[in-house]
Design a protein around this nucleic acid. Structure first.
Lengths: 234, 234
DNA sequence: CGCACCGTTGATTAAACTCAACCTATGTGG
DNA sequence: CCACATAGGTTGAGTTTAATCAACGGTGCG
């Protein structure tokens, strides 16, 4: 964790990503810019860990992170991924509780850190900002509820298909049709909530059914309609 | 759905339940009191349904409701229960989306309805109120994440034990040690995310292991430590 | 070079679902 | 008032799904 040399400018960031800060006045944006601290993380670094207290929220400028909980026998359950423009770590700050998730870097990341105190100043001063953050929380809540129902009711096969489609939507595909996020088989399994071997077996099945192509950690979606049918989303 | 005769008074409600309205000024509380609409629901009534647009949020004064999603082949996945003092229905209002859950009455309910417009007036006027609602959302988010990890990683047996403990914490027990919420076996199964038959079988197991006693829909917890051990929470 | 980590496949086992039958209580209409 | 329908609850048998255990190949790095 070293200080990033090129400080991201909150104003520009706001324009390119439509962050939660979009309702701030120019003065408030300047305030954040002065108060924030920019951090540089390498792949594999842990930004914060479940159970620890944090003293601010994070805004991702660059890279990819995963947010997960550690469950039975240390197995991680991935809750969601973060991409540029996403804020994370606000839950524990708002509820004044220890973090209930850990965050690890998947692709080298640049993260801005905003101290709790300064966040609260803004929340009190600008109610629109609070509504903005409330909207983020409500959106995540909706996703969590969907996810819950899926895990409770769908088969591993259905869930894998669905996760592949979600990853495509969230991270996009490159010119070759490959999803722009490279996960280990274990990580893939930890999103779906299954054993690594099961995820591998199903990937192989999808491959031999010509639904996807696989090159190491690169997954290319060939037949999206089939995936949609398998995943049971209409 | 008929208008309730004894209008709950927001001031008193606030004192007895510590609702999200506790940070409102007396004038704002009076404002809510005048704007709200009080509704009376019978057991089995549906307050709103997934996919529909709602135009306000609800605050439960009396009774019990269940919040659920309808998944594969109409099977309901219960997300959570609501008890007096709880607000619900805010997610779709805040995100200006159709409801992503349905709400049905389990015990005859009295509910106050606050129109979207009036809610937004307060949110803009009083940032503390927004923070309060944000806290509720963040709390639910944390619970959803825990729940997700449990369903993904724990066995049905573990989850049943955990759910019984949660129900005890949320609704309490009466003088005989019976949990103060009466659910059908199917509902119990729909919280855990399992088949009704599986839930029944495990209840019988718990019964013959002297962990619980069952009289119809009344469940009495005998050995809470054993339940804790089974549920794998420390 | 050898260790560590990841990925793959096969065989076996265990958990939970489905299907089916049947029982009980409750309520309804003839 | 009884017959019947309906909904919820229970148990057994068989099947399916996915987890576990085990072995092994490839790759990269100190």
């Amino acid at each position: 964790m070293i200080k990033y040399t090129e400080e991201p400018n909150c104003k520009e960031c706001n324009i390119s990503f439509k962050t939660i800060f979009k309702k701030l006045t120019p003065e408030q944006l300047e305030f954040i810019y002065n108060k924030k601290n920019c951090l540089n993380f390498k792949k594999g670094d842990v930004i914060y860990e479940e159970g620890n207290r944090t003293n601010g929220i994070y805004c991702l400028y660059k890279g990819i992170i995963k947010i997960y909980k550690t469950g039975i026998e240390g197995r991680e359950q991935i809750i969601k991924f973060g991409k540029p423009g996403d804020v994370f770590g606000y839950r524990s700050v708002i509820n004044r509780e220890p973090a209930c998730t850990s965050v690890k870097v998947i692709d080298d990341a640049v993260v801005c850190f905003i101290p709790t105190l300064d966040l609260y100043l803004l929340l009190k001063e600008n109610s629109e900002f609070g509504i903005e953050l409330l909207q983020i929380a409500c959106q995540e809540l909706g996703e969590a509820n969907n996810y819950l129902t899926d895990i409770a009711q769908k088969s591993v096969r259905e869930r894998l298909a669905e996760v592949l489609l979600h990853l495509k939507n969230d991270f996009g595909i490159n010119k070759d049709g490959v999803i722009n996020i490279a996960l280990t088989r274990e990580e893939l399994a930890n999103i779906i909530g299954t054993a690594t071997e099961s995820a591998i077996r199903l990937l192989s099945e999808f491959k031999s059914d010509n639904i996807i192509e696989v090159q190491g950690r690169n997954i290319k979606l060939i037949d999206i309609n089939k995936l949609k049918r398998i995943s049971n989303i209409f």
